[in-house]
């Protein structure tokens, strides 16, 4: 069995809706998000219906992983799953496809991360076979 990073739980897929395509994509280093076929818009986190129309005419599509930091903070106090990760840089990234996603910034000192910086997806390895999307400033 894969070993967990200290204190960081490995998420279980599909506890809410079917998210297998997201996790399969992540394993292969591809960021795959939910897409509303009726309106041509992405939505994240995944939902049971399109938040635009209420229909289930949804599919999963790979996105570029490129985007811009919309908001950012540095978590400085301990909490569940944060062991060994502080100070932790967290950003809301607005992807070029027009959808926002929360992610850690991996390649910069947390204090230098700024709104407006361009980022691209990077992969945080949680175990031998589980990767989670994060971002690097480019």
């Amino acid at each position: 069995m894969a070993e967990e990073k200290a204190g960081r739980p490995i998420p279980k897929p599909s506890v809410y809706v079917d998210t297998k395509p997201f996790w399969d994509g992540a394993k292969a280093g591809r960021l795959v998000l939910q897409y509303c076929k009726d309106t041509g818009q992405f939505q994240h986190y995944p939902r049971p219906v399109s938040i635009f129309t209420g229909s289930r005419n949804l599919e999963w599509r790979e996105v570029s992983g490129k985007g811009t930091i919309y908001a950012c903070t540095v978590i400085r106090v301990p909490g569940p799953g944060l062991d060994g990760r502080l100070p932790l840089s967290v950003a809301t990234v607005q992807l070029d496809e027009g959808v926002r996603i929360l992610g850690n910034i991996l390649n910069k000192d947390a204090d230098t991360v700024k709104i407006g910086q361009r980022v691209e997806v990077a992969w945080d390895r949680l175990s031998d076979d589980v990767q989670y999307p994060a971002f690097n400033v480019v």
């Binding site: 897929p13 929360l102 989670y132």
Partner: peptide, 9 residues
């Protein structure tokens, strides 16, 4: 557990 906790939020 899948989308908000992993990045530490």
């Amino acid at each position: 557990s899948e989308f908000q906790d992993p990045p530490g939020v």
